[in-house]
């Protein structure tokens, strides 16, 4: 009986999604905030960085353990997408989706359209979200050792299944303290706002 219900449901979904775009009601754009998304790593400080990436799915809005149903992955300050090839560091997941990313300048309110020409995929030479202070999403302070999300950097993503999302990272420290202390506040806990466009082919948020 359960199987029958499921079958019926999937049939319904398939038939709905196969309708022409004109009469299909668009799904609402998802706007959400993720708090304390933990992205641990091992190594660093001159040693090779290792450890599993914490994967995130925009469709579910939570961490993903699936090897295919994930869009972006976090490990320390490194962010990868489910698209392209591995850079060659240890413990990288296989990219099997069509994901990509670019960094836009602006605010969540001002980055309203996806520029599909800008997407890059991860490659052996460089990640789509380039690493290092000032290159990607964060700025590192050599004196206080604090990692701060650079204001005005919006990360625009293509999900593994070709949809679009944008995020603004707000903090790299647990419970996003107002003035983080690199020595006492636990780091590698992301807090970010995201907006997810769940409709195929829609390039605006």
């Amino acid at each position: 009986m359960k199987t029958l219900k499921l079958l019926f449901l999937s049939f319904l979904i398939i038939s709905l999604s196969s309708c022409s775009d004109d009469d299909e009601p668009l799904l609402d754009v998802v706007s959400n905030k993720v708090i304390n998304f933990h992205a641990p790593q091992a190594g660093g400080m001159g040693q090779p960085i290792t450890g599993e990436f914490a994967k995130f799915s925009f469709a579910t809005g939570v961490q993903s353990s699936s090897s295919t149903e994930w869009d972006i992955g976090f490990r320390g300050t490194t962010i990868i997408v489910n698209g392209g090839t591995a850079t060659g560091t240890a413990d990288e997941p296989t990219r099997n989706g069509q994901g990509g990313a670019y960094v836009a300048s602006g605010t969540m309110a001002s980055v309203l359209d996806v520029d599909t020409t800008k997407f890059k995929q991860d490659a052996s030479s460089a990640l789509a979200i380039t690493t290092g202070s000032g290159n990607g999403w964060y700025t590192y302070n050599g004196q206080s050792h604090v990692i701060s999300p650079t204001p005005g950097k919006i990360l625009v993503f293509k999900t593994h299944d070709g949809l679009y999302a944008k995020i603004e990272i707000l903090s790299y420290y647990k419970d996003s303290p107002a003035s983080p202390n690199a020595f006492t506040d636990p780091s590698r806990y992301y807090t970010f706002n995201y907006i997810y466009q769940p409709n195929k082919g829609q390039t605006s948020f």
Partner: peptide, 15 residues
């Protein structure tokens, strides 16, 4: 208009 800031470290950025 390429420069952004936050009012406090965890609030959204503005131009």
């Amino acid at each position: 208009g390429e420069v952004y800031a936050r009012k406090n470290p965890n609030s959204p950025a503005f131009q």
